[in-house]
Amino acid sequence: MPESPKTIIKVKNLTVGYGDTIVLRDVSFDVGRGEIFVVLGGSGCGKSTLLKNMIGLYRPRAGQILYDGQDIVTAEGVQRRSLLRSIGVMYQSGALFGSLTLMENVRLPLEEFTDLPDPAMDLIAAMKLQLVGLKDFGHYLPSELSGGMRKRAAIARAMVLDPQILFLDEPTAGLDPITSAEMDQLILQLAESLTMTFVIVTHELPSIFAVADRVIMLDQRAKGIVASGSPAQLRDTSTDPWVRSFFRRETTPVAIQQEDRPPHE
């Protein structure tokens, strides 16, 4: 990763919430081009809400989310569509269309957004499925597959248009350790070969250590970022006992405050 990568996403003074609840208040951070950026935090801290705001599904209460200088919050019409095209999203549950086969699911964005001929779309979709190890399952319906396979197919669909930024919501949750490690390898490979930027919401520690260039850690009580840096930095040097205990997989932050325990990893 370059020393100071050019910023691709700039989040400025973002406040998000739903109903009467404010989840995150006045949050700012940058994501560099080609960076693998991980959003981390305990359950209910607003990771997914932040993600849904960043991909334009929800409208934030205040603040800006700039993609190469263009604000997705205020963008409309053609500008919004082209912004959305430059991002791919894998949802937590996969969100594959149940009435379409895997191949048709992966092909769908190609059919809608490119002029490629039919055989080309078939081949490209098959190649994306091959990347996630599902080439022989192209003619299966999502309901005939396991959760992990659906998740991998969803990644194939999210990246079929080669977006600049890929948002992954819990990509490795629910996968076995080997597939999970393969997924991490895949993410690294894509980031390297396509200079794709990844924004990953996860709390799988092995994945974070395997792929993350930078991590921000959200906290429910602080309603914002409590720590940011590389995973190793957070584990070793963070002064926040909660952050350190998270990275050391310890159960109670109090235990950390009492003495310095050796890290588990």
Binding site: T101, D122, G138, H139
Partner: peptide, 10 residues
């Protein structure tokens, strides 16, 4: 790997 491509349900 791509000699045969199954795109739709049999």
């Amino acid at each position: 790997d791509f000699l045969e491509i199954h795109s739709t349900r049999p």
